[in-house]
Nucleic acid binder design. Structure first.
Length: 850
RNA sequence: GCCAGAGUGGCGGAACCGGCAGACGCGCGCGAUUCAAAAUCGCGUUCCGGAAACGGACUGAGGGUUCGAUUCCCUCCUCUGGCACCA
């Protein structure tokens, strides 16, 4: 015990030294000319926030770094880059809050976050660092935008948009959650504005179909499938007469053409062009009022699920193409203008929403799909809508047809008359791509009275953001850029006449749609990326990040990649082969209802009371965050235990894909383990090299086997416990039982997890001449990883009664004999007849008695 | 409502393909060291009964399949996340 004191583990001394050394020697540089196979390990692009990293942020970074270093030791050339997603609303809002210019504020935040990331000890290749706000980068974001514009993928349209009254700007649909602004939680309104959109819908089928190619978590793929929302059905054309006698075709979308005979009314979305046009004169005012109300209604009210269905009759009638029946036309906001055709045929007997609406408004309910499973009233009428399968009835010549076959037959018969066709509808909508904000990439388009939209010539890119004093939103809905005539007024690149620059900027997502391509050749000046470098490094082999990007970023990045592939710039059309979503780090938060504030744990009085008002606090386990005052800064932990210990605990805290609770004490176990490991290696190295004893050899092979298998399976938490188990075992053995080879294997196996201490031990006492990361991953021998003797449990009727020790590989006969000879077993079976003995060699013996 | 995921000691969690439930760590208890404390080391630690030997119970609840179920099947409960009038 006294000797251990000599080998005191001092991470504060070891870690900065090795980080400086790696930096000096360029140890983490990814080199294209390296002949080894490549591995591209990427963290999701961080936004450099001003509030700094907490241990929750560390989790993903530690995870990806451990994997990257493991791959490196396995003989891959590893690309593990880092950079900054620095444009966008949060960056701008943060700057406004601090009264700084976003450019200065962003630079400050980047410097701070980079310093914090260094502490982790990750093998980032900082020579490839860039930010989306670098003109050298956004020049190419603008260039890619122009490629999309030329392909007709970027276009302008006037449409109702989500307007956030607090941020005073438009939001993409994806930024509106339950009718509220995702960032500030204000209720959003609808306003009309000319917007830039991306025609992502043109790629809907490929974005959906190619999900099958990806090694991604199933839930992320499911979320994307739901978001894209492919729905097979039919467009069926009804006919509507307006009061002036004009006839209008009214296509409706349905997934249930088999229920067409049960359509008892038709509903138009309030914004549908025929709503007012077709309304009877006496009803026109009511329809217009209803539409106006619906238009102004806040999104939150409109989408509330249990909201009662409202609507007005237009007084017009539509003709059902299958039987010529006249049914009333209604306008109701439960029909959405942007889905399908913005109009539906209502079949109350077989659709819950139509059923509710029909009941409320006294409309007819006609059952046309017969099923014994349907719930009925005493008189045999439907007690609720039957939405399942059944047999067609009251459907003319289709009577008796099963509904599944009926879908096809009805459409076929309509198609012959040109009154219907099979179609596919998508939930996915085009992506609103413009923001009325200062801090984003200017959209490189010039508006000319004569030539219309004119792209800024490539040679004039980037369109730089002007340096300005005021960049706050105007509140008029225009970008602050609109208020700078010297920037806005330009000559038309085409005709030289007076023209104006587009003043909208791109959304934050823009820069993160292709950054993973730029890392391959970050300083390339002839294009967004060097095709050679991109084909050498891409696609990304392992992408690591939070689940919050399951749909938006990951869908947009896939979209951009497909467009660039169609441009002939990429030899692949999916950017991220494999995806891993780490769970969140949580911690208890303390909320005082009276004071309406969160309290940090250390200010909470005994008995979980508020220190000021003495009332009990709301205690909840929540995602760690500064705003909830439950964040833990890594700085103090690093100062006390070292980065390696923090890294180890980040992995040990729980299964990486699940949320885990951070406990302050938990890290002690990891830090203690490293101290013991450090001393153990030194102590063993002191003795003359001796061969491994049997148990040490076994422990080593079991360790390497365990770590290798667990890293491959992303089971970082149990990999760490394998290490602890190993040390517990070999510590029981004396130093003279341990070979040099075992020490080397253990140190290399630790290196992905705790790179600093592994590097230190590799050099001293193991006298490595180059970096431990130049070593190769240790091999293991399955047979040596097994113990020579094993304990086999013996059960009687499934209950454990004894354990016998037998040599590894003992056969069934031996096991049975030994088991029955066991006194405790004999006692249990005496006086009973042995019906059967189940022997599983290497596992157990179960004696069945009756 | 629909679709995922989860439910195991005081706590975080482990358990290969159906084979000793509770690995590993935290916490706690006892002991060593210390003038003392921290740190460190050793031993113990699912629960109930028992001084102990030992016996019994136990993986959200209930049922089923099996020699044997945390693991497979059915019914139900709870929690978390996503979607939510998408016709």
């Amino acid at each position: 015990m006294g000797t251990e004191k000599r080998y005191e583990y001092r991470p504060q001394e070891i870690e900065p030294r090795w980080r400086a050394r790696w930096e000096e020697t360029g140890a983490h540089r990814a080199r294209e000319e390296d002949p080894r196979p490549k591995f591209y390990c990427l963290d999701m692009f961080p936004y450099p926030s001003g509030s700094g990293l907490h241990v929750g942020h560390w989790r993903g970074y530690v995870l990806s770094d451990t994997l990257a270093r493991y791959k490196r030791l396995q003989g891959f050339k590893v690309l593990h880059p880092m950079g900054w997603d620095a444009f966008g609303l949060p960056a701008e809002n943060d700057a406004i809050k601090k009264g700084l210019h976003p450019k200065a504020n962003t630079a400050k935040n980047i410097a701070n976050m980079k310093r914090q990331l260094h502490e982790i000890g990750a093998m980032y290749d900082w020579s490839r660092e860039f930010a989306t706000t670098d003109p050298d980068y956004y020049r190419w974001t603008q260039s890619i935008f122009l490629r999309m514009w030329r392909r007709g993928l970027a276009y302008r349209a006037s449409m109702p948009i989500n307007w956030c009254p607090t941020c005073r700007c438009g939001l993409a649909n994806e930024e509106v959650v339950a009718g509220r602004c995702e960032r500030c939680n204000s209720e959003t309104e609808r306003r009309d504005r000319t917007q830039w959109l991306m025609r992502i819908t043109r790629y809907a089928d490929r974005l959906l179909g190619d999900l099958d190619k990806l090694d991604w978590p199933e839930r992320v793929k499911t979320m994307q499938r739901n978001w894209i929302g492919r729905s097979e059905g039919a467009e069926i054309t009804f006919t509507v007469k307006d009061p002036d006698g004009g006839e209008h075709a009214l296509p409706v979308f349905t997934t249930r053409p088999d229920t067409l005979f049960g359509a008892t009314y038709v509903v138009l979305a309030p914004e549908h062009p025929l709503a007012e046009r077709s309304a009877a004169r006496a009803r026109r005012g009511a329809v217009a009022d209803y539409a106006e109300e619906a238009r102004k209604a806040k999104e939150i009210e409109r989408t509330a699920a249990d909201r009662p269905k409202t609507g007005v009759a237009t007084g017009a009638f539509a003709v059902n193409p299958v039987n010529g029946e006249r049914v009333p036309v209604w306008v109701a906001d439960y029909v959405l203008v942007h889905y399908g055709t913005g109009a539906i045929m209502a079949v109350p007997a077989h659709d819950e929403r139509d059923y509710a609406f029909a009941k409320k408004n006294g409309l007819r309910i006609v059952e046309v799909i017969r099923s014994d499973e349907a719930k009925r009233n005493g008189d045999g009428t439907l007690a609720e809508a039957w939405t399942g399968e059944g047999t067609m009835v009251r459907s003319g010549r289709f009577d008796g047809t099963p509904s599944a076959a009926g879908k096809r037959k009805v459409v076929e018969s309509l198609a012959k008359k040109g009154l219907g066709k099979a179609t596919v509808s998508w939930k996915l909508r085009d992506w609103i791509f413009s923001r009325q904000r200062y801090w984003g990439e200017p959209i490189p388009i010039v508006h000319c009275a004569k030539d219309g939209e004119v792209p800024v010539p490539e040679s004039e890119l980037p369109v730089l953001l002007p340096e300005v004093e005021r960049y706050q939103v105007t509140g008029t809905g225009d970008s602050p850029l609109a208020g700078i005539p010297s920037w806005v007024d330009v000559k038309c690149p085409k005709c030289g006449g007076p023209a104006k620059r587009e003043t909208d900027t791109m959304p934050q997502w823009a820069g993160s749609c292709w950054y993973f391509l730029r890392y391959a050749s970050p300083r390339f000046a002839q294009g967004p990326f060097d095709p050679k470098a991109v084909s050498a490094w891409l696609p990304v082999d392992q992408y690591v990040g939070g689940i919050e990007h399951a749909v938006l970023h990951l869908l947009y990045a896939r979209f951009f990649t497909k467009v660039l592939a169609d441009e002939g710039l990429l030899p692949f059309d999916e950017p991220f082969a494999r995806l891993f979503n780490q769970g969140m780090i949580c911690k208890k938060s303390f909320w005082c209802d009276t004071d309406r504030i969160y309290l940090p744990e250390k200010e909470v009085a005994d008995g979980q009371q508020c220190p000021t008002c003495r009332k009990p606090l709301h205690v909840e386990l929540e995602k760690m965050g500064k705003s909830k005052k439950n964040d833990v800064a890594p700085d103090e932990l690093v100062a006390e235990h070292g980065a390696d210990a923090v890294r180890l605990y980040e992995l040990f805290v729980g299964p990486p894909e699940l949320d885990s609770e951070w406990t302050t004490n938990g890290i002690n176990g990891c830090s203690g383990f490293l101290a013991r490991f450090f001393a153990w290696v030194h102590r063993c190295a002191e003795t003359a090299d001796s061969p491994d004893s049997d148990r040490v050899a076994r422990a080593r092979h079991a360790l390497v086997k365990g770590i290798t298998e667990k890293l491959e399976a992303f089971k970082f938490n149990t990999a760490v416990s394998d290490f602890m188990k190993f040390l517990n075992e070999v510590q029981d053995a004396g130093p003279t039982e341990v070979s040099r080879e075992t020490l080397r294997a253990a140190v290399v196996a630790l290196a992905p997890f705790c790179p600093h201490v592994a590097e230190e031990l590799w050099h001293d006492p193991l006298s490595g001449s180059s970096s431990v990361f130049e070593a190769s991953w240790p091999r293991f021998d399955e047979s040596l990883a097994r113990a020579k003797e094993m304990q086999i449990p013996v059960q009687v009727n499934g209950k454990l009664r004894a354990t016998v020790t037998v040599p590894d590989g003992a056969d069934s006969a031996t096991l049975e004999k030994r088991a029955l000879a066991e006194p405790k077993v004999a006692a249990q079976i005496s006086g009973k007849s042995v019906k059967r003995v189940v022997v599983v060699p290497g596992r157990l013996v179960n004696v069945v008695v009756g």
